[in-house]
């Protein structure tokens, strides 16, 4: 057998409590793991939806056509990124535990929070990558439809109305708010991923994780109604049973308001999203994601492997 020489002791490997290189190693490895599960096939479906929706409705006015194209494309981006976030995150810990790769990784000088952040980072990289790809596809289809419509308009519009018609066309295709809306899709998916990570840090099966995460997502969309009722209507002294009050308070306190992260419909309708509003929404979303990740760490740090 060939012999192994010890590593050169003049280059000491000193332990750091936090190492970006380690974090990146785990995140990129997680991304690779997810990519090699062939998740990107959903992009084909997305392209089909995006192109199909724009061809299906050619009998409508161009404003209506673009509305449908944007609704369907942005809606599909929301659904796909949400599904990816929940399904990809839910299987990370159980899979590593089952394969005992978790043992080998944590038996190396890797702090548990770094492992957890790396795993989440891998999912976020996957989400960013797939949203970027979908955005590019969507922009391509939008540009193609815009060119088609432009040709039609130029052929059919009297010269004095042409400027207004082209202006109307441009206003119903690309707007800066579309970019902000796509960023909020990412934000919402990131919240869902960290929430799923939190659930999976104490759950015993990934099915349970997925179910709880999906329920939390649906309740998160009703949360503003419950919150509003709990905060404003109840103090006004309406005859609601204490049980209902406790339930409403529970929903308001323990669930995020997912409606706040729905800026997509606004952008698709051609309305401008003010930047300060976007920034405040992002700050809140970051808050959710950080709290959920921290709580996930709390459970994971005490987990007996």
């Amino acid at each position: 057998m060939p012999t192994s020489t010890p590593l050169d002791p003049s280059v000491p490997v000193r332990h750091r409590w936090f190492s970006p290189a380690r974090l990146l190693a785990i995140a990129s490895n997680t991304l690779l793991e997810l990519v090699r599960q062939k998740v990107f096939y959903f992009l084909l479906l997305f392209a089909l939806l995006s192109i199909g929706s724009s061809l299906l409705v050619v009998q409508f006015t161009f404003q209506q056509q673009f509305q449908v194209l944007k609704d369907v494309s942005l809606g599909a981006m929301s659904i796909f990124s949400w599904l990816l976030a929940v399904l990809a995150t839910a299987q990370l810990l159980p899979r590593d535990l089952e394969d005992r790769t978790l043992y080998t990784i944590l038996a190396k000088p890797v702090p548990r929070f770094e492992y957890l952040l790396g795993k989440l980072g891998g999912v976020l990289l996957l989400l960013a990558l797939s949203l970027a790809l979908m955005s590019a596809l969507f922009a391509g289809v939008l540009a193609w439809r815009e060119q088609t419509q432009l040709a039609l308009i130029q052929a059919a519009t009297p010269p004095e109305d042409l400027e207004a018609a082209v202006q109307a066309l441009r206003a119903s295709t690309f707007t800066p708010s579309l970019g902000l809306a796509i960023l909020t899709i990412f934000l919402r998916a990131a919240i869902c991923a960290s929430l799923t990570l939190l659930i999976s840090s104490f759950a015993t099966s990934s099915i349970f994780t997925v179910i709880v995460s999906v329920i939390a997502y649906i309740i998160g969309h009703i949360q503003p109604v419950a919150r509003d009722y709990w905060l404003h209507s109840l103090p006004a002294g309406q005859g609601v049973s204490p049980l209902v009050q406790v339930f409403l308070g529970f929903v308001a306190l323990f669930f995020p308001d997912f409606q706040l992260f729905n800026l997509v419909d606004e952008a698709a309708a051609g309305n401008t999203i003010p930047f300060p509003l976007f920034a405040q929404t992002s700050a809140l979303g970051l808050g959710y994601a950080m709290v959920y990740t921290f709580l996930a760490y709390l459970f994971f740090s005490q987990k007996e492997l």
Binding site: N29, E33, T101, A107, K108
Partner: peptide, 18 residues
Amino acid sequence: HVESREAVGFLPENPYFY
């Protein structure tokens, strides 16, 4: 402490790697 793991290599039972 995490540092203690610097000096140790571990081979679990029936390991599977990625």
